[in-house]
Amino acid sequence: MSQPGYEGITVEHLTKQYHRVRAVDDLSFTVHPGRVTGFLGPNGAGKTTALRMILGLVTPTAGTATVGGARYVDLPDPLRHVGAVLEASSAHRGRSARNHLRVICRAAGLPDSRADEVLTMVGLNTVGTRKFKGYSLGMKQRLGIAAAMLGDPRVLILDEPTNGLDPEGIRWMRDLLRALAAEGRTVLVSSHLLAEMQQLADDVVIIAAGRLIRQGPVAEVLGNTAGAARVRVRTPQAEQLAAVLRDAQLQVSADPDGALRVFGADPARVGQLAFAAGVELHELIGENADLERAFLELTAGKAGAR
């Protein structure tokens, strides 16, 4: 159903000015096919506005956003290229989920049978005839995914899709998005659930106050931050070990309790250097930076004053 070819997302100098607030400020990033890209930022960072500009729902003040090289509004059959999950509560309360999907099918020129197929895919086939007002938040999120998948799109854009999901639902969503990316699709998913993103995303785009803070593969973004991989080591021969480590081009500092903190190395490397130098170790702990800490360090002080 989808056309082959490059189906990434390119955002260039995207800007949205609302009266006095610059919700999105000269934002540029790229999203690649075959990977899950996490779109991260504190509340009010401009994630939703940026996603809506990519989808042609909000008009940018400046800049462009393209999907597969074309603006969303210029795509001939947009739902066959791009599927989007925006807010969960976006169906008529008095309409059944199945009819909600069939309306979209007709507007997009898709067969009505797709409505039943995607309902089965998200596990709502038994409650498809129930009215939307009877749906739980988790069911609404699943319905949102179903609507996004109607056109079997190569690009998926999801705004906080795990909101309101229980742990089982979050796991289901994670597995689904990973599977879709593994099929070569482009998946852009915004979230403030950082731990969740660490398990899910291949790449991250971090924004705060409408501006890009950092983008790249998760491991690289973590490695680049001040809170990157470090090792805490305790030894009775602290001075001797510190000299050895510095000779190995590692950065070392002393903790108040006398332990050493080594930056840019993992425990195996530190242990090997200590062993070679004949230094006795009492403690050797790797402290992995997590995305959450990196995120907080990166966005510190930038979320306020908006």
Binding site: L57, S90, A91, I104
Partner: peptide, 18 residues
């Protein structure tokens, strides 16, 4: 008006950007 009242304008205009 129901498109805006029930927030269905989003899915409507995603399917038909024109």
């Amino acid at each position: 008006t129901s498109e805006f009242f029930h927030l269905t304008a989003t899915s409507t205009f995603l399917a038909t950007p024109r």
